[in-house]
C-alpha cells in the first residue's frame, strides 16, 4: 500500500535528517571517548562545547547505541521516499528507541540529582549539565516523526 509520494519524500527527508544527526553524534561520542576506552587517555577529537557546556560525552558504547538509532531511521528512507507505507515502521521504531534512550538518560539525571540532594560523596561535584547528552537533547527532533506515524492512520490503510 502506498501513500502520497510528496508526503513520502518529505517523510524520507525528515528521517534522513534525524538518522544522519543521530549517527553523526554517535560517531562523535565514539571519537571523543576512544582515548579513554583504549587507555591512551587523549581523545581523538577535541571536546564539543557550547557556552562552556560539554555537549557530547566521551562514551564509546553510548555512541554505538546512537548509531543504531540512526541506522533504524536511515534504513527506512528509501521505502518512505517511494511512498511505501512499510517505511513508516522505521520512523516509528526509530522514534521509539530515541524515546527509550531519552527516558533512560533522564532517569539517570534525576537519580544523580537525588544523590546530589542528599550530598553523598560521589555526587558532591555533580551538576545536571554533566548528564546532558545527545540522547536527551536530540529527542525533541524525533517527536514529530513518532506523532505522525502514530496518528496519521490514513497512511496505514
Amino acid at each position: 500500500m502506498r501513500f502520497n509520494k510528496n508526503v513520502g519524500t518529505a517523510i524520507g527527508a525528515y528521517s534522513f535528517f534525524i538518522g544522519t544527526t543521530y549517527t553523526v553524534f554517535g560517531l562523535l561520542e565514539i571519537l571523543i571517548g576512544w582515548g579513554d576506552f583504549v587507555g591512551i587517555g587523549a581523545s581523538l577529537i577535541p571536546p564539543i562545547e557550547l557556552a562552556g557546556i560539554n555537549l557530547v560525552p566521551p562514551d564509546v558504547f553510548g555512541g554505538i547505541m546512537l548509531i543504531i538509532i540512526g541506522a533504524v531511521y536511515l534504513i527506512g528512507v528509501r521505502q518512505q521516499a517511494r511512498g511505501d507505507r512499510e517505511g513508516l515502521s522505521f520512523l516509528l521504531v526509530g522514534s521509539l528507541l530515541a524515546a527509550v534512550f531519552f527516558g533512560v538518560f533522564t532517569a539517570i539525571m534525576l537519580a544523580n540529582g537525588l544523590g546530589y540532594m542528599f550530598q553523598f560523596e560521589d555526587w558532591l561535584d555533580w551538576t545536571w549539565l554533566d548528564d546532558l547528552r545527545p540522547g536527551i537533547w536530540l529527542f525533541p527532533l524525533a517527536l514529530p516523526g513518532a506523532y505522525l506515524a502514530l496518528t496519521k492512520k490514513e497512511w496505514r490503510e
Partner: peptide, 11 residues
C-alpha cells in the same frame, strides 16, 4: 490495514 504490531515487527 497496516497495524501497529506489524509496524513494530517490521523493524
Amino acid at each position: 490495514k497496516w497495524a501497529l504490531s506489524d509496524m513494530l515487527d517490521k523493524v
